[in-house]
Amino acid sequence: MSDVISALQGRTAEGVVTIQEMGLCGMITLRGDLADPKIAAICRDLTGHDLPAKGHATTTGETGLAWMSPDEVLILVPYATSEVALSMAQEALKGSHFLAFDVSDARAMFQLTGKYVHEILAKLAPVDLDPAHFPVGRLRRSRLGQVAAAFWKVDQDSFRVVCFRSVADYTFNLLAASAKAGPVDHLNG
């Protein structure tokens, strides 16, 4: 089999905010009735996290859960375990109305780290990223420049961004350009 590689193979741009493509990440889209206890149970089994509240994500390292819409959750697992995780989800939810799909190779994930990370993102998305309104754990699906993306706040100084793999290069360059242009000293003071 061919070697699997991520979209940008860990490309990194250092600056006031460091942009790093995270390499291979396991991502499973799970759609269904999020109130179904079976969905909550399998999500907990796979990641160790409870289902996040509306508009939130809970992650530790490579694993976690991201709320994507009222009937969709993104399950994050280490890349090597995504196939096993997918079959476990399919097994656990057999009989329910659901959809589970491994999108690991269809998405790209970025880690943004730095003091001005809010500003670097706020320049690109029509979202109120004031730390007072966007606390740790908050997730938003919106757009960055011209492409759709989801991002959530991992801790005070870092965000994670997920976009389609086909636009990974654009997203990386966009984020890097925004970081290169520097802070505007509006949100962080």
């Binding site: 508009g55 819409s69 009222p70 938003r140 919106s142």
Partner: peptide, 9 residues
């Protein structure tokens, strides 16, 4: 989803 959304979204 409970968000204030800009019209471009």
């Amino acid at each position: 989803c409970g968000e204030d959304v800009d019209e471009t979204d």
